[in-house]
């Protein structure tokens, strides 16, 4: 399997404060990888290192098989990058912006650019500085999709956008980047959970996990156990149980390593006979809230 994005022990500090620590990230080819984490987790820092906007203190990052510090115009012509807060040349009209960028990209597709403008409902003759935030993001995205990039990196693209614009962007991104690998960061899973194939959770600069969405959803369960009265008051909790709450005979927890039979065996090992066990699948949002809480508790 090839990895359009791969990092090894990537670290970065800002004035002595660690922004990311030993980040090992692998984004699979043609996957849509969601990099999730609270604000300040290090997502933007990681992405900026990948794009060679800033330099890592240690470790290395490879993008499209090239050390990120050596990204040349050849690689950049295959990468689309859109970030919240990116400075666009406000004096350019939407149309001129696209026509200015066109000669930089050998794979530029005029018909796709026109289609994107139409789909995003972008006014061709309006200056970028006169566009709303959402429209600017659309313009940036259109300018980054029109050459059919092999890799699309989106850093918090939906921040500050209303749901309608967000949906329009998603609808624009997916068909236009059918054969592309996408790395998208967000602090809100709701924004991206509907279309990502892989997810990584970054907290305080550390990648807590990175896996396929289906696997993640499969291994997290909310467990509710009704005890049979004779259970120990201070049991040794199995590894992988999180957010454990106990109220009399009722125990609630999240099992992050759920496997039907194995989990049941664990429950019996801890509590002996129980009256009732229920394992409910969790929505992704609940999984991340659980992880975030656990991470904070550990810290």
């Amino acid at each position: 399997m090839s990895w359009p994005i791969r990092t090894e022990n990537l670290s970065k500090t800002f004035r002595g404060v660690a922004a990311i620590t030993d980040l090992n990230l692998q984004v699979p080819e043609k996957g849509i990888y969601g990099l999730i984490g609270p604000s300040g987790a290090g997502k933007t820092t990681a992405i900026r290192i990948l794009m060679n906007i800033i330099r890592a203190r240690s470790g290395r990052a490879e993008v499209l098989g090239v050390d990120s510090t050596r990204l040349s115009p050849r690689e950049l012509a295959s990468i689309g990058y859109v970030a919240d807060g990116q400075d666009l040349p406000g004096w350019m009209t939407v149309e001129y912006f696209l026509s200015y960028l066109k000669p930089f990209y050998p794979t530029w597709d005029d018909s796709l650019a026109a289609e994107l403008l139409r789909e995003f409902d972008l006014p061709r003759d309006r200056k970028l500085s006169h566009l709303s935030h959402g429209m600017r993001m659309k313009a940036a995205l259109a300018s980054s999709l029109a050459y059919r990039p092999r890799l699309l990196i989106l850093d918090e693209p939906f921040t500050g956008l209303d749901p309608l614009v967000r949906d329009e962007l998603i609808e624009g991104i997916l068909p236009a980047s059918e054969h592309a690998t996408i790395l998208i960061s967000s602090h809100d899973l709701n924004d991206i959970e509907s279309f990502i194939s892989h997810v990584g959770y970054l907290d305080r600069g550390r990648l807590l996990f990175s896996e396929q969405m289906t696997a993640l959803a499969g291994r997290f369960r909310e467990i509710e156990i009704v005890l049979d009265g004779g259970a120990p008051s201070q049991p040794a909790w199995p590894a992988g149980w999180m957010n454990i709450e106990r109220s009399g005979d009722l125990v609630r927890c999240v099992d992050s390593q759920f496997e039907g039979g194995r989990t049941l065996t664990e429950i019996h090992r801890v509590f002996g006979e129980v009256r009732h066990v229920e394992a409910r699948p969790m929505p992704l949002r609940a999984i991340f809230v659980t992880l975030a809480k656990a991470a904070r508790k550990e810290a």
């Binding site: 900026r48 794009m51 906007i53 115009p73 950049l76 012509a77 970030a83 990116q86 666009l88 930089f104």
Partner: peptide
């Protein structure tokens, strides 16, 4: 400043400029 080398957020930084 129209393509500022010091500004990380400038649009040109991630474009295939030679």
């Amino acid at each position: 400043y129209s393509e500022s080398p010091a500004a990380d957020q400038s649009f040109w930084v991630t474009r295939p400029y030679s």
